[in-house]
Design a protein around this nucleic acid. Structure first.
Length: 807
RNA sequence: GCGGAUGUGGCGAAACUGGCAGACGCGCCGGACUUAGGAUCCGGUGGGUGACCAUGCAGGUUCAAAUCCUGUCAUCCGCACCA
């Protein structure tokens, strides 16, 4: 088959008949299959795109043939840094290069022959999309979920610019290699932490890979504990957070993060010089190093003491950078006997180590960090673990010195970017009115084309007077726009909603429509987004729900991660390694059906693995072999024959194939599904080769074969379907359904074991009672030599599988 | 350091709730058809080749373990002083 012409023939036909367009009127049977949209950084589709979209399309087509009204849209995550960096390097404007790339990719995606509904296409860099991204920002702002505060950002002193976290590699600027420093800037944040608990709890309701759920869970990092107030000699108080209030009698010092405001206030004159030096030093230590747990703990005594609220003991206060100001209260109680970090710190600074928890079974080696029995803890002696914590927490509450508290590791989402190629933040800074949101009617705040985006330390937009200069929407006075743009993850946090109502000019989406179309039934994309996009999108959905714009809790009910196709050398494909495989040459030789089918057959979908094209020819061979069989069978003539053993056998294989493929596709096991197709074709060849065959039956099986293969090789199947004189389109047919009766066999082959070792095979009738099996087996010539003169101790029958005789 | 995953022929990989390890294919070997085959079709293919040994390694549970348990090694991924 000349795949090239066949593929373009059917692609044109599908487009003309709008075969792939979703029928919006029939949402009862809707099935929303979504692949993570493309980032148009390179001009061409790479193997990774194919691996994401090809097999997913097979799944989508399968669902469609099962009778679902499948919606499978595609679009482009078009804002972002690579386009801007490319522009800085080459001088080509991000808008121009992005549009160019999108045009190429669209063409290639169409040539792939996937059933994308292009009528719902989205490009996030277009005004009619980012207008609504800005709308989202304003809604979150109104709801109190967007706020501004000063925060440290990554700053490259050589490039003179702010870098996104993704651009920082091992503490250095990815472009010039200069160590990145922290700089405080006022930034916009989304209050994702308000949803920490729900984001955590909701994970249980999702059909997602366990690993991904666990990653989100750890990322959110819930810890339940206690906030305890310590008073200082000066009368000032501060709180510490601990998950181990049962160790409070073992406190031998307390630590404040160097940034803690009380450090400056409480430091004694004698210690001032040392403390200031320490603070100075830690401020210059970069984040990466400071956060390394392997690093030796350092700190300094501030010359002031605090009082343990449970026993009145005076303990020294230290400033130490192993305590993070950004987590909990920025202060910690030091219990060397029962915390490894505190132990190391106490050793270094000669602080006392007081054992207050003992191991249940006697031996207690310090530091002992597990739950144990309280000792040296006054009235709480003898209490164990959780019980001790409860009692001590209650005691502290009664004293007014503590309360239970839940802390999360999750931080608010910093969305400001001092970059050009993104959606402008729709607020105005007015000298009189302060921060004023841009009125909805004035959206979008247009991203100007003519901007100097070469980095020099300022947001590129700040240099565009035409952009910056505006009137305050509130008082009408002179005002300035916000020069920052939104993180591109904001754009991708709601695109799955826009797809459902892509052309709505009045609002981002219609609530009723979205309620019907969402959640996404199957979401397919890379695992690298586990703690970013996949978390942000969940947050957006929940926030929009609370504002009444939609009425479901989770955007993606079921999620699958494809694996990664590595270079032939086993490393990640990268230009610098020179191991990048381009799909194009394979496609020009074999066509898109063969290529996608090979991706399905040669790898375990969720595993991926090193590229190897040995098998690609075999898939081409398989399709050719299939075609020969199909075409030959169409030309054959003959009468119906009695349904004898050969027909029964073929019918068994046929129905078993249907059953297995249906099962395999449901769980994205494409490689085994293709294997089943091959088995079926082999069985058809075998049947075709016999003398007395029933041609009508053969043709009936061949018809099933075409239907079965259709989701895997869509153009190929469509062509054969037409060649068989069937009516267009093969995708409007129902996928074959397994006839369970055909799978019942009169006799099944059992494995025969003596003392658990395989000795032979045996045919056993399907309804044979156990006693009969037993006597039949024991009297068979196969078994006799093993049982003669021995006692049969046990006789095990596993129905349909094996018989094990223990002698 | 913590958390998770993976480890099966020469290769890519299969194996439902423990039940015939290696489906399907690549490669290789043999045969058929051929002037020829790198096309096609058919057969064989874990190792030794005797009733034995084989799922990273060492134990354990079981009539039966790739699968469950304990320990251990290797590789990959995520988090990385979160109190």
């Amino acid at each position: 088959m000349d795949m090239k012409s066949v593929e373009s023939k059917w692609q044109q036909r599908w487009e003309k008949t709008k075969e792939n367009n979703f029928n919006k009127k029939d949402t009862d049977r809707k099935y929303y299959v979504l692949e993570m949209f493309s980032y148009p950084s390179g001009a061409k589709l790479h193997v990774g795109h194919w691996y994401n979209y090809g097999p997913s399309d097979t799944f989508a087509r399968f669902k469609r043939m099962q009778g679902y009204n499948v919606f499978q849209p595609m679009g482009f995550d078009a804002f972002g840094l690579p386009a801007e960096n490319y522009a800085i390097k080459t001088g080509i404007h991000p808008k121009d290069s992005t549009e160019q790339n999108i045009a190429t990719m669209e063409k290639q995606l169409k040539a792939m022959g996937a059933m994308f509904d292009w009528s719902a296409e989205i490009k996030t860099c277009e005004e009619d999309y980012y207008k609504w991204t800005q709308w989202m920002f304003l809604k979150l702002y109104e709801k109190g979920l967007a706020y501004r505060k000063e925060a440290p950002v990554n700053w490259c002193p050589s490039c003179n610019t702010v870098l996104a976290n993704e651009q920082v590699q091992e503490g250095c600027c990815e472009r010039c290699g200069t160590p990145v420093v922290k700089k405080d800037l006022t930034q916009w944040f989304f209050k994702i932490t308000d949803y920490a608990e729900e984001l955590l709890a909701g994970l249980d309701t999702l059909d997602w890979p366990e690993k991904t759920k666990l990653m989100q869970k750890n990322w959110i990092g819930k810890s339940v504990g206690c906030e305890i107030e310590f008073a200082c000699e000066s009368g000032d108080t501060f709180k510490v957070f601990t998950t181990r209030c049962d160790t409070i009698f073992g406190v031998s010092y307390v630590v404040l993060a160097p940034e803690h405001p009380l450090v400056k206030k409480l430091t004694s004159d004698e210690q001032r010089a040392a403390v200031e030096e320490y603070i100075e030093k830690t401020a210059h230590t970069d984040e990466i190093e400071r956060l390394s747990s392997a690093r030796e703990k350092t700190g300094v005594f501030i010359g002031h003491c605090a009082i343990n609220p449970v026993n009145g003991k005076k303990v020294p206060i230290y400033a130490a950078d192993y305590v993070l100001y950004s987590y909990g209260t920025g202060a910690v109680m030091g219990v060397p006997a029962h915390d490894e970090r505190d132990f190391a710190f106490a050793q270094k600074y000669g602080l006392p180590v007081t054992k207050v928890i003992e191991n249940k079974n006697g031996e207690t080696i310090l530091p002992f960090t597990e739950d144990g029995i309280c000792v040296n803890s006054l009235q709480f002696d003898g209490r164990f673990g959780e019980e001790a914590r409860t009692e001590i927490a209650n005691h502290l509450t009664k004293l007014g010195k503590g309360e239970r508290k839940v802390n999360y590791r999750l931080r608010d989402w910093l969305v400001s970017r001092q970059r050009y190629w993104g959606a402008p933040i729709p607020v105005v800074h007015c000298p009189k009115c302060g921060i004023v949101p841009v009125p909805y009617k004035d959206l979008p705040v247009r991203l100007p084309y003519d901007v100097e985006f070469k980095p020099d330390g300022k947001s590129p937009l700040a240099k565009s007077e035409a952009f910056m200069h505006t009137k305050c929407p509130h008082c009408g006075g002179e005002a300035r726009r916000d020069p920052d743009t939104l993180d591109t993850f904001v754009c991708s946090s709601w695109y799955y909603l826009r797809y459902a109502d892509a052309h709505n000019a009045k609002e981002p989406f219609d609530t009723e429509t979205v309620d019907k179309m969402l959640p996404v039934d199957k979401y397919i994309g890379g695992a690298e987004h586990a703690c970013m996009h996949l978390l942000y999108a969940r947050f957006f959905t929940k926030a929009l729900r609370d504002m009444g714009y939609l009425h479901f809790d989770e955007p993606f009910r079921s999620l699958v991660h494809q694996g990664v196709i590595l270079g032939p050398d086993g490393n990640r494909m990268s230009k610098s390694k020179g191991n990048v495989i381009s799909p194009d040459e394979y496609i020009s030789v074999y066509g898109s059906d063969v290529f996608r089918m090979y991706l399905m057959f040669g790898f375990s979908y969720t595993e991926g693995g090193p590229w190897n094209d040995d098998g690609i020819k075999s898939v081409a061979k398989f399709l050719e072999r299939t075609e020969r069989l199909v075409r030959r069978s169409f030309e054959e003539h003959g009468d119906e024959m009695p349904f004898a053993a050969a027909e029964k056998e073929l019918n068994y294989v046929r129905n078993n194939t249907i059953r297995q493929i249906t099962r395999d596709l449901e769980v994205f096991s494409f490689n085994t599904a293709v294997a089943r197709l091959m088995e079926f074709v082999n069985a058809l060849y075998k049947y075709d080769g016999i003398q007395e065959k029933s041609v009508p039956f053969l043709q009936e099986c061949v018809k099933d074969l075409i239907l079965l293969i259709a989701p895997f090789a869509p153009h190929f199947a469509e062509e054969l379907w037409e060649a068989g004189g069937q009516k267009y389109s093969v995708f409007d047919q129902h996928y074959p359904v397994c006839n369970e009766k055909a799978l019942i066999r009169e006799e099944t082959e059992y494995a025969l074991q003596i003392n658990s070792k395989i000795k032979g095979k045996l045919m056993i009738g399907k309804d044979m009672p156990r006693e009969e099996i037993e006597s039949l087996v024991l009297s068979s010539d196969l078994v006799k030599p093993y049982t003669e003169g021995k006692v049969v101790k046990k006789f095990i029958v596993v129905p349909g599988r094996l018989i094990n005789i223990i002698v």
